[in-house]
Design a binder for these strands. Structure first.
Lengths: 264, 264
DNA sequence: CGACACCTTGAAGGCTATCAAGGTCGGTGG
DNA sequence: CCACCGACCTTGATAGCCTTCAAGGTGTCG
């Protein structure tokens, strides 16, 4: 009882003295800090160390012992899991306000995926002992972290259901709609996915091959549903994609033939 | 800031006075209470109300507003998610020490699955406000809850990877091995799944049809890898199944041809 | 302007769902 | 006790979705 667990694995405690504690104003707007008063925010931030990552860089690697916990301030990451046979999956997309590495720390197991930056990104890093201590000292923080984990679980279960019950075209539709919701930017033609996204990436998110993804997007482009391009995607008719995702076979569906919702 | 969130949805707070607070001894051995001293355990249990469920019964239903959080003391549940088209998935298996309903409560969204008892089961129920309050008052409890959620996330991501990269036979192998780990009981012939499990259940866990599952299990039974039966399964050669799960095509593999591990 | 990464498109084949037709077990009521 | 019924399981045949194999096209960066 009351047994102390080694949350950071068994490696020596390396606590690099924060060069300078980040400013509270940088995180005030994040939902993770909604519940906390200024004092608590400052207390938690005092232990954090900012870090900058360019596209392709990773703050931690699959298989590493848990050591640090990261909070994304800006930019975006894709969490890639590689199997022993070399097959890959993108387990989730990580954006501002999301944590990385906390699952492994809480589980006391090696990291199960490598988060790779797809944009110039800024993160905060905590030594994992400090992170655990912050949660113990500020229950509101712990609850906020749990909220994020709960959302993560629901998303994973949703994707699990899609993978088990849907055809490839539906899964791709769901995937791009989810991308638009998580990282979409309104543009003239519709909604643009606001980071470089290859066909291969979509394939890794949907359990399809890049060939099938390419074919599907080509078909959609011919129907005017999307604008494709090199590492680039614009959803011109999200409502039609939603109908495809919902189970309608698609068939001869065009932009005009589907009732455009008045709201939104 | 400090804005109070409606964790229980907007329904009136119904707090049925606990008939009698459950005994601390019933939960002492659960990992969820490892970190807590006796006083904290008692404080948390004081708010809980025991409840008994028979096979087929569900403590909550998919789509319901979050209201209560449950802790399984004994028995077992399968969490079933149904899509609008009627397709079903089993998102997870819930056993002693696991929570139910907490994800929806933390997310403040309707329950995303219905946990159905597959055995006579005993659970503890908390009003969700009380549950949140317990976590705020006892950070160690919050951390323990998070540990369970972290495990849940890793399992979901693992299954996501399997669904995306593996053939049906491999997925079934992984599924039955996971079942054996979570609900296995050593018997003379090997390891028995210790609750009634239909082919359909396995199909809902793996994204296959019950026909394919039946065919696969029949083939395994002919090879002596498993003993099948009505709602019944015994793994005679888990190490061979592990090899099948690991990617080996199986082919002419028999019990004898695979090196039996010395340990365990 | 050459090389690399990304994308497109065709053809063939296999894995699995689907359709179809029973078989078997266990409980229930007469 | 026995017959019936429902739930669960098995096995064949067929069809089709999607992967796999193959061959190029295209955009971008150094």
């Amino acid at each position: 009882m009351g047994q102390q667990l080694a949350f950071c694995g068994d490696r020596p405690k390396s606590r690099p003295a924060p060069a300078r504690s980040p400013d509270v104003s940088a995180v005030r707007h994040l939902r993770l800090f909604d519940d906390l008063d200024l004092e608590a925010q400052a207390d938690i931030l005092r232990l954090a160390r900012p870090q900058r990552l360019g596209p392709g860089e990773a703050p931690l690697r699959q298989g590493d012992a848990p050591d640090l916990v990261f909070l994304v301030l800006s930019g975006r990451f894709k969490a890639v899991q590689v199997t022993s046979e070399g097959a890959q999956v993108v387990t989730r997309l990580v954006g501002p306000g999301d944590l990385m590495g906390h699952v492994a720390v809480l589980n006391d197991k090696p990291h199960s995926a490598t988060p790779i930056a797809v944009l110039e990104s800024l993160v905060l890093a905590w030594n994992c002992d400090d992170f655990m201590e912050a949660m113990r000292r500020h229950p509101g923080f712990a609850v906020a972290v749990m909220r994020g984990m709960a959302a993560s679980i629901q998303e994973a279960h949703t994707r699990l259901r899609e993978a088990a019950t849907e055809r490839v075209e539906q899964r791709i539709a769901h995937a791009v709609l989810r991308l638009a919701r998580q990282a979409g930017r309104r543009v003239a033609n519709g909604v643009e996915i606001a980071f470089p996204l290859t066909r291969q990436d979509i394939a890794l998110m949907t359990g399809a091959t890049l060939h099938t993804v390419s074919r599907t997007l080509s078909a959609w482009e011919h129907q005017g549903l999307v604008d494709g391009g090199r590492q680039h995607l614009v959803l011109r008719a999200p409502w039609v994609l939603a109908r495809i995702a919902g189970g309608a076979a698609g068939g001869e569906e065009t932009i005009a033939s589907a009732g455009r919702p008045s709201g939104e």
